[in-house]
Design a protein around this nucleic acid. Sequence first.
RNA 1: GCCGGAGUGGCGGAACGGCAGACGCAGCCGGCUUAAACCCGGCAGCCGAAAGGCGUGGGGGUUCGAAUCCCUCCUCCGGCACCA
Length: 832
Amino acid sequence: MTSETRTRGARRERFDPASYEAKWRERWEADALYVARDDDPREKSYVLTMYPYPSGDLHIGHWYAATGPDIVARLYRMRGDNVMFPMGFDSFGLPAENAAIDRNIHPAIWTAANIERMRTQFKSMGAGFDWSREVITSDPAYYRWTQWIFIQFFNAGLAYRAMAAVDWCPKDQVVLAREQVEGPERRCWRCGTQVEKRDLEQWWFRITNYSDELLDFSSIDYPDPIRLMQTNWIGRSEGAEIDFPTEADDVEPIRVFTTRPDTIFGATFMVLAPEHPLVPILTTVAQRADVEAYVAQARRATEIDRMSAERDKTGVFIGSYAINPMTNERIPIWIADYVLPGYGTGAIMAVPAHDERDFAFARRYDLPVRYVVGPRGGGIPDGAAFVGHSDDEVLIDSGDFTGMPAAEAIHAITKALEERGLGHAAVTYRQRDWLVSRQRYWGAPIPIVYCTEHGAQPVPDDELPVVLPEDVDFAPTGVSPLQDHAEWLATTCPACGGPARRETDTLDTFVDSSWYFLRYCSPHDETAAWNPEQVAAWMPIDLYTGGAEHGVMHLLYFRFFVKALRDLGHLAFDEPTLKLRNQGQILGADHNRMSKSRGNVQAPDELVARYGADTVRAFLMFIGPWDQGGPWNPSGIDGIQRWLGRVWDVAAQPSVAGGSGGDEAGELARALTRATHTTIAAVTEDYEGFHFNTAIAKLMELTNAIIRERDAGMAGSTAYATAVDTLVVLLAPLAPHIAEELWERRGHAYSVHRQPWPVADPGLAAADTIELPVQVDGKLRDRLVVTPDTPPEEIERMALASVHVQRYLRGREPRRVIQIPGRLVNIVTPRD
RNA sequence: GCCGGAGUGGCGGAACGGCAGACGCAGCCGGCUUAAACCCGGCAGCCGAAAGGCGUGGGGGUUCGAAUCCCUCCUCCGGCACCA
């Protein structure tokens, strides 16, 4: 904590953030300084940071995540944009329900209390959030429209109900979307428990309709890692679907997907997934017992066992044969669990010579391996799978196609099959549809009723929202707690008026967060999910920030929502945000993720009490590149405190321009003006580019320059007054409270946050003289101080005259002299 | 295994292919103080008395010049993982 400061004997008023920070926050709120107005004619700028789950307390990571976009939003605002920077809460979800179970508090009450607390904590950081637009997703006024969107999707066939083997978390007693199961051990993203497979009838969103469009990033600016994650997740593969006839009568052929139709002459057996529908039909009597045992075992095997690439491949011959359509050979049909039922057609042509997995399987069961692709120059590979398929490889032993480059044969063989009606080019994706139903209470009820006569019927719009009943037993049973609520459960069919039963599953909370950014545009509209004019005016988001951990979940889902709602005629743009930036994660001091159970959570409250909000904000932005994050380490916060104390020292008095202090035209004044303008240019660029750490370094340098000039007697000059005022304005986005307080003390009109952003004058930023490094053979040997307009011949003459250079030249003529104008001189010595 | 990102002083980190270590932290010396804290001034990559030499994970390459570009290897972090 700073005590009284002494500067050259003069006592100045203490730098005491506690004396003014709260005062200014109240003033800003009273003046609606950050409230975005729909009728503002200036250019709009929608800046958004991912809203948090109201877990109970803000930790330092929330401050870290929010301060970056707050700085940029404040920059945009000072530049004259009409900025919307809203905040809300992603308030449905399991922790509330678990708290209810553990502590016997209703989820709604627990959630409301947490929101209250976190809102207060958020307000203490002085961020320029527009709280008038706050969205709370567990509010019926919000989830009414989540349900409305579900019904739009249902009516359009984008929401459907289907039985499937799904991931089930035995601890949370709930199904999970595939994206929510993590790592090779298949753990629940929320609690870390290993998931199980269960066959359940669930609700899905048809996100795969948009797989191709989701691969297109041409109109948006996303970080490369996110683009790659999404691209890999969607996993587009081009190849062919090929039909292999079987010997059985009246049985459809086996359709396979392959990316390597060029290897078809090497297909020596077939493998079907154990779940494949043709398995019971094609299994011969002799093999039935073995096959049934294997299928049963595959069903029981956990996802983990089954997916492990390390595990030995197992399978069973089912007794019948298919015909290779190119060679007309009989090839045996096997089942094996390394073929997955959900990808491609759930069946493959096995080409052991050119696929690692098929090779391992063939080895184990002694199946034939036939090489049909090899290096152009000959030399037949042996003893391993040979996977090359470029123009450098050619087909061998492949009938009419022998000798053709493999890359060409992919298309030629596909075409030949197509002409015979046995195949066609095809594309498949790894991405699956999004499983959205959850067997828990604290979520938006799926607005569907079941009628024995009419099946699944959407709840009519005028009956929305389907409100969660309050009096339920939350104990997890594997089915939704709503199933025990007879009164809520019973309803009537919208089609016939007869008795019907409500759907009891609720929606994945990622559904809520897939459209909250739209709600912010017209948060109080009671007649629609959003007002079309206001959405047209504000959307798309100009800058969205958040954690990269949402790369294949939220950041994919919200893109899907916008595209789907566009196709349903509700939106007129293609992407939710034009620009995305990810902040790094602040880890605990122990280098682990902050979590209550680890006890490594750093709360901001005590830091704010000790240092003030501005110091905490500036410190967080100073510790390193914003997109990098890192372990929490408070050493260094005192340095930030000292710096702001020095800023206070130079700026806490009225601004006096043109006073009696120093020579206005002298070198000192020019140097300070130059420093002021180079700082404006650099800080502006750094703020915009999210390089807050270097922006702060440059603000510190300007502060140090100002102090030197003050000590040199320049404090009364116009250049000095301008430098200090500029420093305060440049500081405003980063440290809004101290900037406001100093702005007032310097005698300027409220508010610094409404000041126009300064513009650097390149003429004033230009240096009178430059220091030119002189290298000999690339190593620094001397420096020249010259004016920028010194002719190159003169610079060369001066450089060669340097004693340091001459020592290395030893009287010889230089072989070359390289000049980079304004940057350096490099003298290359002769070779000898 | 595949795909990314990253390795720079005691620490956090700077550096359009052009002065490596900006800006800070911690440290040391000095001033202020009865004293300490705060504050202020200075020093500070490593080796060396100096001249100078060596330095951006290791090795190689391109270049007048490489932390930066290329190849290769090592380590750490993240994502995906039998996807045919």
